[in-house]
Design a protein around this nucleic acid. Structure first.
Lengths: 217, 217
DNA sequence: TAGATTGTTAATCGATTAACAATC
DNA sequence: TAGATTGTTAATCGATTAACAATC
């Protein structure tokens, strides 16, 4: 296939494929079919083939997909074959936790700067990074070529921080604050809001006997 | 309208509505139209009206929606009008961060127990909760009527923890580990995987000049 | 009454799944 | 060759949006 505009649903599945392929590689499995992938990832095999076919002919009929080759291709599609620097704004507990994932993200993505507005936090060491004052944000982003920002500040500051990130030339934002950020349309925003997740989970709790039952299938 | 099976997309928007309505209430705004909601939340007004109409006739023609009334209704739909106890498994940095949200979740949802498999962690105090050993999990879940589990353990333990949670009678899981959990179909699972989020964000970074451009619109 | 806004039906759009020829 | 599995087209399914009568 190749080309066409790719839907967000497709893009969001690519990292899931990648994760599992990495796993297969670690286990020294060199080939995998869409069928096997589908089974392990709870997805329809046709969907997986279609997703991959948007980007090229990566498989071999009768055989399946070569694990190493597919990893390489997906990494390229996701731009994970180059280093992407990430800035973390908000050195609270959550920011702290996320900065630990540096090891996991490996070479490809990396939090390379941490900022906080709160005076006493500035200068603290978090996993070998020094917390910088907000006034440094623009300079550091430009100096380090940082392209993605993670927002872990309190709700009330999130929009303000987003504005500053955008002004500093950031291209995408991962927002942990439970607010809808307003930014120019060329800035990509993903909401990573754990309270929304939890609250929608509650909907699916089994009802007590006193409730109309909505959820048989 | 009322009834029909409600899609997950709808359910996931309800907490977003709720959050904004709470905001309006704080600002003492008593009425809101689907138009205003749509504008602030970046959603189509017709979609908002349709979402709400699945659950009842909450608005008034020519007027809009009464903020307090709609809050009450959505809280009921999401079962946030009763206390829901939550267990957190994994007292690492991320678990630590999440436990702070107790204040935010208020009365309705509450992390009431924290567990960790690592001996030295057991007994530690985290925000007035004592970290319990995994062996206590079943007993505590049953004793406290805990219905939702949050998994913040390392990848390799996540499935094991999920199994234990399911055995202990949990109904829903919020999973922060980047793995696909296998559970019975009556258990609701939401993936809250920050690495997947970040990696899919990278796709949307603007290409360098050396790349075929996929992303004009 | 005139203006605003809902609830709902119909139209559109997009995403998932089935099916199958091509081919390893 | 027979069996397996891709890439892709067509069919299905579902979600979003437009439009409008009802009505505050």
């Amino acid at each position: 296939m190749k080309s066409d505009k790719i839907s967000e649903a497709v893009v969001r599945r690519l990292p899931v494929y990648l994760r599992f392929l990495n796993d297969l590689q670690k286990r020294e499995i060199s080939t995998v079919s869409s069928q096997e992938l589908g089974q392990k990832l709870d997805l329809n095999p046709a969907q997986i083939r279609k997703d991959l076919a948007y980007f090229g002919d990566f498989g071999r009929k009768g055989i399946g997909y070569d694990v190493s080759y597919l990893i390489e291709k997906i990494r390229h599609i996701l731009k994970l074959d180059q280093q992407i620097n990430v800035a973390l704004v908000g050195a609270g507990n959550l920011g702290h936790a996320l900065s630990n994932y540096n090891a996991y993200l490996k070479d490809t993505m990396k939090i390379t700067a941490i900022f906080d507005a709160y005076e006493p936090k500035v200068g603290q060491q978090i996993n070998s990074l020094t917390v910088q004052p907000m006034s440094q944000l623009g300079d550091t982003i430009r100096a380090q070529g940082i392209r993605i920002g993670i927002i872990t500040v309190p709700d009330s500051e999130a929009q303000n921080v987003a504005d500053i990130l955008v002004d500093s030339g950031i291209e995408a934002i991962l927002n942990f604050a439970p607010v809808i950020l307003k930014t120019p349309s060329n800035i990509r925003i993903h909401a990573a809001d754990f309270t929304t997740d939890l609250q929608s989970l509650a909907y699916y709790l089994h009802d007590g006997k006193d409730e109309a039952e909505d959820e048989q299938q």
